[in-house]
Amino acid sequence: MKQAIIELKNVWKTYEMGDVKVHALRGINLKVHKGEFVAIIGPSGSGKSTAMNQIGCLDIPTKGSVFLSKKNISTLDESDLAQIRGKKIGFIFQKFNLINTLTAKENIMLPMIFQDVPEDKRNKKAEALLKLVDLEERMDHRPNELSGGQQQRVAIARSLANDPEMILADEPTGNLDSKTGSSVLEFLKKLHKEKGTTIVMVTHDKHVAKQADRIETLKDGKIVGAKT
């Protein structure tokens, strides 16, 4: 049986807005196995972002459990969560979310700094990753000196810095033109195929979602269907 990287068991997330309780997630069950490429799709307001926060261990559920590599993370505090995220999950965001004051290379090294990776190792790894995303020439450029596509490639390289067990991509093509978006998607697919990287991608775009092995559809805080 394939090993589950992340598993959500009856996960509820409820926000209290004054007296009103808003259930963003209503008992989600989801399992992502090692080596899978899963897309989570849903219209806006469906609970996509909340689900992504749970999968990415950015937040803990109000009810239910989240297991990352069989470890229940639902009860951990902020710093422990950060540690786990840094080690096991690589993030790719819609708006790239690079640190503007740092160069491309420094951005890639940042997750390694938080994991106390020694400097020479950090340097080597960052350079290798820059080569992988074909941006060696741009390693000393800051984000505002790079195009959107280049920034997203730096972000992809950053997500791979600590050899995570899973990459979580939140609308990775949302801020890119279609051509650049496709090339980023191609790159993710290649990563998945050639290196067996586990990828979870959250999107509202069916065409983008189609690139995945499996599509899970969210609606009103519930998973309403899976398609492989």
Binding site: E78, A82, R85, G86, K87, N97, L110, F114
Partner: peptide, 16 residues
């Protein structure tokens, strides 16, 4: 704020 969020997402502890 956003930068702090990014750093925390990619593994920065509170102490960092």
């Amino acid at each position: 704020t956003k930068e702090i969020g990014i750093m925390k997402a990619i593994g920065a502890k509170n102490s960092d």
